[in-house]
Amino acid sequence: MAIPLADQLKMYKNMLLIRRFEEGVAEAYADGLIGGFTHLYIGQEAVAGGAIASLNHDDYAIGTYRVHAHALCRGTSPRRLMAELYGRTDGICKGKGGSMHFFDNEHYFMGGYGIVGGHLPIAAGLGLGIHMRSEDRVVMAFLGDGASNQGVFHESMNFAKLWDLPIIFVVENNFYGIATDVRVSSAFNEIHRKAQGYGMPGHVVNGMDVIAVREACDEVVSYVRQGSGPVLLEARCYRYQGHSMTDPARYRSQAEADLWRKRDPIPRLAKQLLAQDVEQERLDGFQTEVNEIVADSMQFAEASPRPGPEALYEDLYAENYGG
C-alpha cells in the first residue's frame, strides 16, 4: 500500500531534523559543549525515519548508543535531548546519561545502551512483559551489524522465537563495527539470514530509501502485531561520519564513501515528493523550520543549568535507607 503523502512529508521532515540535529551536535562537540562518546547518525536517517513511523505511540522502541535519531522520531523534545548532550538539568535524563543513554518514558523510548548487544535481552524482556500483560503492543529493537556477533544477540533471538514474543529486530547494517568490516567479523554476513537459524523470518531492505524502509516495517510490524512471533529486518545503510566524533574513519576509501553519498536518502525522497507535485518551496520551508528547531534546542541547552551537587546521589534507588 502506498504511503500517504502526509506521512511521506513527515518522514522527510524527520530526516531533515535528524541531520540538522546531528550537525548541530557536531558543532557543539567541536566547541567543547558536549563531551564523552558521541555517535552521529548522518547517512542512516532513512532507517529510524522510516521504521519508527510504522509504530503506534505506545509501542516500545529500544536502541544502541547511536540513538539521537530514534528518540527524535519517537517524538522526544529536541530541546531536552540537546540539553542532555550538554549535561544539563533539563536533559531528558537530567544530564546523567549523555549521548549514549537517551531514554523517554513518555514516548516509550526505552533507552540507548552502550554495550554492543546488551540491550537485546532487555528488548526480549519488553516483549515478554507485553506477552504476560496480554497487551496490543510490539517492541522495535534497533541494533548494528556488529551486535549480531555477540552472544546475547543469539540468546535473545532464541528467546524471542521460543516464546513468540512481539519483537522486530531492526539491524542497521552500516557495514562497519567501528573500523572492522562486516566481512571480516561475521562468518555469515547476510545478517537477515541469521534469523533462519531460529525459525524466524528475516528480510533485507535498502536502508537508504525511507519509503522502502517504511513499507517493509509496516509489513513486519503488522505481522508481529498479529501474534505471529518475532521478525528480523536488515536495513543496509551507511554512516557518513566515523564511528564517533573522535574517529576520522581512515579505514574506508573515499570512493566507497562517495558512492554511498550518492544514495543519500534525503534528496532521494525530495525528488519523489517533487514528482508528487509537492512544491520545492515547501521542502525549503521544512529545512528552515528544522534549522530553527535545532538552533532553539542549542540555545535552550546552553541556558539550562548544570546539575547541582545534590543531584549526585539522586535517582539511584526508588527506595532509600539510612546508613
Binding site: 526480549a124 524482556g125 515478554l128
Partner: peptide
C-alpha cells in the same frame, strides 16, 4: 507454565528478560 517458566540455559538473557519485563510493569 505462564507464570512459572522454564528457560534455556542463557543466563545473560534471563537477567535481561527480567529487566525488560520489569520496564513494562511486571
Amino acid at each position: 507454565a505462564r507464570r512459572v517458566r522454564d528457560t534455556p540455559i542463557a543466563e545473560a538473557a534471563i537477567v535481561g528478560l527480567a529487566i525488560g519485563s520489569a520496564l513494562t510493569g511486571m
